[in-house]
């Protein structure tokens, strides 16, 4: 058992190393460099550096050294816990990400909770009424939803619910320069702003959870132990939840954790659509200005998140299913 765990963890570490390496090289394959854009914003008149200045900055950030030297110093810095210093923002990458990450984490977690719970309930309902009107309707709806790309759904919501109806703010994480009369006011404002991003992310993920829950429940319902449970004269609720869902949950729970990783990816799109101040938007900004260090930092964070979630999914599955030991 312990041996298997160790093997698993070293497997994850290997994966991480590969990702870090790709993470280092890929931004450097992009055309341009940080100093071309250092002092300009998008759409503004570009103030360019002179050759001399560029050479100076390159030397300052160590970008003039051979790429392998850069790589080794990057790795050794990482090992010391130093993920770097942003060229564009002039601040530690960890500090910048630290400020933005809570926004992303909150919408991602909110979305996963909402989409998984709704998906499980709807999926179970569908499975229980298999081939009924409810099942067919839900199935069609979910299939359609899961085929629409995230940003399109986001834009759709933005157009209708925010721009046309004005129910929700168009952009941002909270009102700018607002004076809140109370803490509750502040929370309400944040929730108000988060609503559309969360809704979009939830809708995007809903289909997946629904289909999974439905399939899982359908296969569980045909199992011999469900017949045994019915023969025992147990109540319907106990049959569905204790006997059915407990078995059907196994694949769903793992998927929740696996999705968390994928949702971070989704968040990048959604945050840009809603101009939400999370890591997703930060990344876009970083890419635009070729801030290698920041891009690397964000990628690293996403990679570690995905890997951690995979690991947790692995562990949780072991915990939930007594047959896997």
């Amino acid at each position: 058992m312990r041996k298997r765990m160790l093997a698993k963890i070293s497997e994850y570490l290997m994966t991480l190393l590969v990702i870090i390496t790709l993470n280092f090289f890929i931004p450097r394959l992009m055309p341009g460099d940080p100093f071309t854009f250092l002092s300009s914003d998008e759409g503004q008149v570009t103030v360019t550096y002179s050759e001399e200045q560029i050479a100076k900055y390159k030397a300052y950030y160590g970008l003039d050294k051979p790429i392998l030297v850069q790589y080794t110093s990057y790795i050794s810095n990482l090992l010391r816990g130093n993920i770097g210093y942003s060229i564009y923002y002039n601040d530690h990458v960890s500090t910048i990400i630290g400020k933005r990450i809570r926004w992303t984490i909150s919408i991602v977690i909110a979305a996963i909770v909402i989409s998984s719970l709704t998906g499980i309930v709807l999926g179970s309902l569908s499975a229980w009424n298999r081939n009924g009107v409810l099942d067919k309707g839900l199935y069609t709806l979910m299939m359609t939803l899961s085929e629409i790309p995230a940003f399109l759904i986001g834009i759709g919501f933005l157009f209708i619910l925010a721009a046309k109806l004005g129910w929700f703010p168009l952009a941002g994480g909270m009102k700018s320069f607002a004076n809140y009369s109370s803490f509750a006011d502040r929370i309400m404002d944040i929730l108000h702003h988060a609503f559309l991003p969360v809704l979009t992310l939830s809708v995007v993920r809903l289909g997946e959870f629904y289909l999974l829950a439905r399939n899982s429940m359908i296969s569980v319902l045909t199992k011999d132990y469900m017949r045994t449970a019915r023969a025992k004269g147990l109540g319907k609720m106990r049959i569905i939840f204790r006997h059915g869902l407990k078995n059907a949950m196994l694949p769903i729970v793992t998927r929740v954790f696996l999705s968390l990783g994928a949702l971070f990816g989704g968040a990048i799109l959604v945050e840009n659509v809603f101009h939400y101040p999370g890591v997703g938007r930060l990344m876009r900004e970083a890419v635009m200005v070729r801030d290698y260090v920041l891009v690397q930092g964000i990628f690293l964070l996403v990679a570690i998140t995905v890997l951690t979630m995979n690991l947790i999914a692995d562990i949780i599955y072991r915990r939930l299913d007594p047959r896997v030991s």
């Binding site: 199992k223 011999d224 132990y225 045994t228 449970a229 204790r242 006997h243 407990k246 078995n247 196994l250 939930l320 299913d321 007594p322 047959r323």
Partner: peptide, 9 residues
């Protein structure tokens, strides 16, 4: 059969 009892209980 293997499945006649609920595997997770």
């Amino acid at each position: 059969s293997l499945d006649v009892l609920n595997p997770v209980l």
